[in-house]
Amino acid sequence: MEALHQSGTQIAQRYKISYLLGRGATGKTYAATDLQTGEQVAIKEMSMRRAKEWKELDVFEREARVLSVLEHPAIPNYIDYFEIDTDTNRYFYIVQELAIGKSLSQMVVEGWRTDEAGVKAIARQILAILVYLHRLTPPVIHRDIKPEHAICRQDGQIYLVDFGSVRSAFWSTNSSGATVVGTFGYMAPEQDRGQVYPASDLYGLGSVLLFLLTHRSPAELPQRRLKIDFRSHVQVSEQFADWLDLMLEPMVEDRFHSALQALRNLPA
Rank of each mutant, 00 (worst) to 15 (best):
W54I: 04
H72K: 08
S47H: 11
V69S: 10
R49A: 13
P73E: 14
P73S: 10
T86M: 09
T86R: 15
A51M: 11
K55I: 02
L67R: 12
P76L: 11
N77K: 15
I84E: 15
E45S: 02
T88I: 11
L70E: 04
R62M: 04
A64H: 09
L70D: 06
D87A: 13
V66Y: 05
A74L: 07
M48L: 12
S47L: 01
R62E: 07
R49Y: 06
V69M: 10
E45K: 04
F60V: 02
V69K: 14
K55P: 00
E53A: 09
K55G: 01
N77D: 11
R62W: 01
M48Q: 14
Y91N: 09
A64F: 03
E56W: 02
E53R: 14
E83N: 09
H72L: 04
K52M: 05
S47P: 01
D85N: 12
R65G: 00
T86V: 06
T86W: 10
P73W: 10
P76K: 14
W54E: 14
L57K: 15
F60I: 01
L57G: 05
S68T: 02
D87L: 13
Y91E: 09
D85K: 14
L67N: 09
T88Q: 15
V69L: 05
E56Q: 14
L67K: 12
E53Q: 13
L70P: 04
T86A: 08
A51L: 00
Y78T: 06
E56S: 06
M46W: 01
K52D: 05
L70Y: 08
P73I: 05
E71H: 09
D58W: 05
A74Q: 15
T88E: 15
L57N: 08
A51Q: 04
A74T: 06
E71F: 00
M46D: 02
F82E: 04
H72T: 04
I84S: 13
V59Q: 15
S68Y: 05
A64I: 02
Y91A: 01
S68R: 14
Y91Q: 10
D85Y: 12
D80H: 12
V69T: 12
W54F: 09
Y78M: 07
W54P: 07
D58L: 08
A64L: 03
A64G: 08
V69H: 11
D58C: 01
I84R: 15
I79V: 12
W54Y: 11
F60C: 05
R49Q: 13
R62P: 01
M46P: 00
S68C: 03
D80G: 08
L57R: 14
F82Q: 06
V59W: 15
I75H: 10
I84F: 06
K52W: 02
E63R: 10
E61L: 09
R65L: 00
S68L: 01
D87K: 13
D58Q: 13
F82P: 01
E63T: 05
K52I: 00
E63C: 04
R50V: 00
E56P: 00
